[in-house]
Write a protein that binds this DNA or RNA. Structure first.
Length: 274
DNA sequence: AAGAAACCCAACCGCAGGATC
DNA sequence: AGATCCTGCGGTTGGGTTTCT
């Protein structure tokens, strides 16, 4: 059956997202959710196709995205899950709170696959124990990698992640995993404006609240897959489950976020009149 | 300092499958 | 029942960044 192309070309923008576009998209989803991705860009006044908007949101703008380097536990989990699930990245991502399928896929292809490849073992050993091998990256440099390109959008994302009420969709784990990222050595997702550590754990109390034991990952990740197969609650754009506990705050959260983005830029001006 | 090579990640593309008409 | 729409997924790639020579 002849499928219509994803984007009806004509004037639709492609390529990297600008901070302004990010703001518009986030603000729109905050206010109206993303019931219809195809219609969303038009409603939001974005010159993007719905697919592109969805991808940007899922992989980058969602407030519960955990950025930064993968921990050893996460990498091990990916390897283990990949053995069980194969290339079902979304299924693997569902078991790694805060990580996207795209991110996991990238990590797999750039690091883990090589690590598992017997022919690359020697190379990987060299990687583990730097001894002046070719193209050996230093951790600090690796952490810095791509920082410039991300910085602008991070301002938006981190702002979201910073004050975002932990989304119930992933709350059980994301509240935990976010703090785990704090312990990571590198932090590619950090931006000068919103250092991850500060942004998430804005107060000592909060920081303490999210402290958790290193054993979390080993315990969580060693759980049988079946234990994860709990039907997901329906949720809104930010993963807010409409339960009694969270629904009351949902509207407030929306307003809060709208204010954040209004204050962070000129979103109000950019939003189309609806 | 400049160029080459390697690395990495965001984003695109096309397909599959469920939902709807 | 079949056609079409829409979303989600996995594969792939373009191009920026970092490191080495």
């Amino acid at each position: 059956m002849g499928r219509a192309p994803c984007c009806e070309k004509m004037g639709l923008k492609k390529g990297p997202w600008t901070p302004e576009e990010d703001k518009v998209l986030v603000a729109h989803i905050q206010r109206f959710g993303h019931g219809n991705w195809r219609a969303l860009p038009k409603q939001a006044g974005l010159l993007r196709c719905g697919k592109s908007c969805r991808l940007r949101w899922i992989n980058y703008l969602r407030p519960d995205i955990k950025r930064g380097n993968f921990s050893k536990e996460e990498e091990d989990a990916i390897i283990r899950l990949h053995q069980q699930l194969g290339n079902r990245w979304s299924a693997i991502a569902a078991r790694l709170p805060g990580r996207t399928d795209n991110e996991i896929k990238n990590v797999w292809h750039t690091h883990l696959k090589k690590r598992l490849d017997p022919t690359n073992e020697i190379k990987e050993e060299a990687h583990e124990a730097p001894a002046g091998g070719k193209k050996q990256r230093r951790p600090a440099a690796a952490a810095k990698r791509g920082g410039a390109r991300r910085a602008a959008a991070d301002a938006v994302t981190e702002a979201s992640a910073a004050a975002a009420p932990v989304s119930p969709e992933r709350s059980a784990s994301s509240s935990v995993t976010e703090s785990s990222s704090v312990t990571e050595q590198g932090n590619t997702g950090s931006s000068p404006a919103f250092p991850k550590e500060e942004s998430f754990a804005s107060s000592p109390d909060t920081a303490e609240e999210f402290q958790f034991d290193e054993s979390f990952w080993s315990e969580t990740l060693s759980m049988p897959l079946e234990s994860f197969d709990v039907p997901m609650e329906p949720c809104d754009a930010f993963g807010a489950v409409p339960t009694t506990s969270s629904s009351a705050g949902a509207a407030d959260d929306m307003d809060y976020w709208l204010r954040v983005f209004m204050e962070s830029g000129d979103v109000q001006q950019e939003l189309p009149q609806i």
